[in-house]
């Protein structure tokens, strides 16, 4: 029976929804013990929701006298100690910006195999599926090592509930920071925005959006769906949107349940960042636009007319 650890990510103290897909993936591996590892947030308040998704044990990890959030290497060392203490066979987590950094530090410090941005995981066979060649192909990668480390693309695996009894304990390893890297400042933009790479719904605006202000039309619609907005490179290069919301080969990779393209031509480079979305909808004035060849549902029309109507209908029907 495998012991599977899950690194839980929190935001302002609450467990992010995207963790539940990772827990679901862990549960799909036979009758292993699922151990949630928390480096921030509170295990006591997370206990109930984590139990709902099949967690057997929640472990609050801390290092005496240290602020783990300011010491990325120390965080990785604390996690390494937990892998030993709980005899983990595999450690899963989210391939968010922080997750990728943490898992890469951990893999390097323990010399273990790591797959980042996985779409599927098979612990018994020690293999994962992940994207290769900017989303054009899917690779099956076989890993061999005493512990397998996998960070999963947010939303790639649908969350399914399955309640179990859950216990809480704490673990305080005595580890030391190698003193190489120090966080000196964190700037949280004062915003109520959902994180793009973890959003369940994204409304994307392309070049025809024509100004930064016009993104408000998309934002109104996205907010109703609990989602956020993104942009094509053409829109970013034209100065209508910040690079931080660009999706595609040179931007972010996302995998929401629903991706609505408003005025996007359907370039290979944009699709490289969002083609694993569950449902893709396109709104485009040109009936021959290539995007209609590679999405699920299409509406021929002007985004400035269609999107406000969509927002209105959603207000009525949701």
């Amino acid at each position: 029976m495998a012991n599977i650890g899950i690194v839980i990510e929190t935001e302002d103290g609450t467990v992010k929804d995207t963790n539940f897909g990772v827990l679901t993936a862990a549960r799909g591996q036979g009758d292993g013990t699922i151990i949630a590892l928390m480096l921030d947030g509170s295990a006591d308040s997370a206990k109930e929701i984590l139990g709902k998704y099949g967690t057997h044990k929640v472990v609050q990890i801390s290092v005496e006298g240290a602020d783990l959030s300011a010491r990325p290497d120390l965080k990785a060392r604390a996690l390494a100690a937990a892998i030993g203490n709980y005899s983990l066979d595999a450690l899963l987590g989210l391939a968010s910006a922080q997750g990728r950094d943490l898992f890469a530090r951990l893999a390097a410090s323990m010399d273990l195999p790591l797959a980042l941005d996985c779409l599927a995981v098979d612990i018994a066979r020690q293999s994962v599926k992940k994207s290769h060649f900017s989303g054009k192909t899917t690779a099956t990668v076989k890993m061999s090592g005493s512990v397998m480390l996998c960070a999963i693309r947010p939303n790639a695996i649908e969350a399914v509930e399955a309640s179990v009894e859950v216990s809480v304990e704490s673990f305080s390893p005595s580890v030391q920071d190698p003193g190489l890297v120090r966080v000196v400042e964190v700037n949280k933009e004062a915003s109520d925005k959902v994180d793009l790479t973890e959003a369940a719904v994204i409304v994307a605006g392309g070049r025809p959006i024509a100004s930064a202000d016009n993104y408000a039309i998309l934002d109104d619609c996205a907010k109703l769906l609990g989602g956020t907005i993104s942009a094509s490179r053409a829109a970013v290069d034209a100065g209508f949107a910040p690079h931080s919301i660009q999706v595609g080969q040179t931007g972010k990779t996302v995998s929401p349940r629903l991706y609505i393209c408003c005025g996007l031509s359907g370039s290979v480079q944009h699709f490289a960042g969002m083609k694993t979305s569950k449902v893709i909808v396109a709104i485009n004035t040109d009936k021959d636009a290539p995007i209609f060849e590679k999405c699920d549902y299409g509406i021929i029309g002007d985004l400035f007319e269609v999107v406000p109507v969509l927002t209105e209908v959603l207000k009525e029907k949701l």
Binding site: H132, A139, I299, V306
Partner: peptide
């Protein structure tokens, strides 16, 4: 420690189901 054992093309979607009618009908 890790080895690429299989490469597969990601299947493309086969084309959109187009929603017709006026804007309101299509959106509904």
């Amino acid at each position: 420690q890790s080895e690429l054992i299989k490469l597969e093309k990601v299947p493309e979607r086969s084309g959109a189901k187009m929603l017709d009618g006026d804007v309101r009908q299509a959106v509904e």
